[in-house]
């Protein structure tokens, strides 16, 4: 699935008032091809996360259009947009995004369950991923008992479990040790090259560049050559 953004912009107000704003992303044209890992780097505050959110259908641009295989991600029907997002797009956000009332295994299966796509072998598959990322003993633990790195792996498993065609990962290796960083990057590379997924990784870490098919850099809301 190809994601295409045409002339998208997003501005934020520093304080209340029409004139006091800045562009987090400015008139950006961008595309994510299938079966490739695209990496977006840049300084903090350069607009990487805002761009990722807009491409993932989570933040409506002030101007421009984002489409997935020709379908507008910000169409008028929220139910259709959400169903499409749940089925085809998976996101690993930068911050903590798990349900505190569910245990690790239930959090891993959350995306599948909400999309009504849980299968008989879903639990076994989730356990395989948990084992691969060395957190299987924590399958019944609650999120509050997990470290930042463990939580990040849970969010990644949740995204991988949905088997969505497009995966957006914002700093997926933050808080991870070298060994787990390797495993996560390998999983993302496999997803892109063997399962033909479209992958966008936003990162500060040079380690991730090793699996990149394409690298871009953001500067003051604009994409510049890496």
């Amino acid at each position: 699935m190809e994601i295409i953004a045409k002339g998208i912009s997003k501005r934020f107000f520093r304080k209340a008032g029409e004139s006091n704003y800045f562009f987090a992303v400015k008139e950006c044209d961008f595309s994510l091809p299938e079966a490739a890992v695209t990496i977006l780097t840049g300084h903090s505050g350069s607009g990487k996360t805002t761009l990722l959110s807009m491409l993932a259908g989570l933040l409506a641009p002030d101007a421009g259009l984002v489409s997935a295989d020709g379908r507008n991600l910000y169409g008028p029907d929220d139910r259709e947009n959400s169903a499409f997002r749940g089925r085809h797009l998976a996101v690993v956000p930068q911050g903590r995004a798990v349900l505190d009332t569910l245990n690790v295994l239930d959090n891993c299966l959350l995306g599948l369950r909400l999309a009504g796509r849980e299968a008989v072998d879903s639990i076994a598959k989730a356990e395989e991923w948990l084992d691969r990322f060395e957190i299987l003993p924590l399958r019944s633990a609650m999120p509050r008992e997990l470290s930042g790195g463990e939580l990040r792996r849970v969010m990644l498993i949740r995204a991988l479990m949905t088997e969505a065609e497009v995966l957006f990962a914002d700093e997926p290796t933050a808080d991870l040790d070298e060994e787990n960083t390797e495993k996560v990057l390998e999983a993302l590379q496999t997803a892109a090259h063997q399962q033909q997924k479209t992958i966008l990784i936003v990162t500060h870490e040079n380690e991730a560049l090793k699996i990149a098919d394409r690298v871009f850099r953001m500067n003051k809301g604009e994409i510049v050559p890496a």
């Binding site: 989570l58 929220d78 139910r79 947009n81 959400s82 169903a83 997002r85 749940g86 089925r87 996101v91 956000p93 995004a97 798990v98 349900l99 959350l110 995306g111 909400l114 999309a115 949740r158 949905t162």
Partner: peptide
């Protein structure tokens, strides 16, 4: 936000 991220619509 996590639920919306996982594809839950506003209505749901």
């Amino acid at each position: 936000a996590t639920l919306r991220l996982c594809g839950l619509s506003r209505g749901r």
